[in-house]
């Protein structure tokens, strides 16, 4: 299914954007992308890809069978404007589940780029035969992403109260959302 990429979308302002998997050649541009994420948001990254050495190691070990990283890049200047990672599992008991994380450059957050990336992830997960997609969001920080996920039929499945601490020591809830992919017959 990776042969389906790149996939084109057009943002609300008419910018042509391509979605495609990350390759080893994207390190420099990904460094720039993460460096332009506000510091107060970088704090919440579970995998510190905003640190060049961590990103370098991560790129060196790209393995699409474990993590499928998709980027959105402007077609005109190849600037990366969003990044989504679909984490897959090897253990048979959770082979049917994927975890997604998404981050959009601040300048493109009102352009629905994140929504298209999540939709692309849902379709890819379906094509892979996954049955559930799980997304975790920090309450009060990623509310726009939560709203985008709700529009794509993600449901609140749980809350880990005060699970996340920000750089000022303030606690935030972690919202766990699930998108079931194995719906049966049409309900129309």
């Amino acid at each position: 299914m990776l042969t389906d990429y790149p996939k084109a979308i057009v943002t609300k302002d008419g910018t042509s954007v391509l979605l495609r998997p990350v390759t080893e050649y994207d390190e420099k541009e990904l460094n720039r992308f993460f460096s332009e994420i506000p510091m107060n948001e970088q704090w919440f990254l579970r995998h510190k890809l905003d640190e060049p050495e961590t990103l370098h190691r991560w790129i060196e070990r790209l393995d699409y069978s474990r993590i499928l990283p998709i980027i959105a890049e402007r077609e005109d200047d190849r600037k990366i404007i969003a990044n989504l990672r679909l984490h897959l599992h090897e253990a048979p008991c959770i082979l049917h589940v994927g975890h997604l994380r998404v981050m959009v450059h601040p300048a493109y957050r009102s352009q629905k780029v994140g929504s298209w990336m999540i939709l692309d992830c849902i379709k890819t997960a379906m094509d892979m035969g996954l049955e559930k997609l799980i997304a975790e969001f920090v309450s009060g920080v990623e509310d726009a992403a939560i709203n985008a996920a709700i529009k794509l039929d993600f449901k609140h499945e749980g809350v880990l109260t005060d699970y996340i601490k920000d750089q000022n020591g303030i606690y935030h809830d972690l919202i766990i959302m699930v998108r079931n992919l194995s719906s049966d017959w049409s309900d129309f």
């Binding site: 379906m126 035969g129 049966d184 049409s186």
Partner: peptide, 19 residues
Amino acid sequence: YSWHWDLEGKNLSGGQYRN
């Protein structure tokens, strides 16, 4: 459109039919 698909007759989920 998934509402046009014969999921029952094919015994497939929407995702499988799409594939």
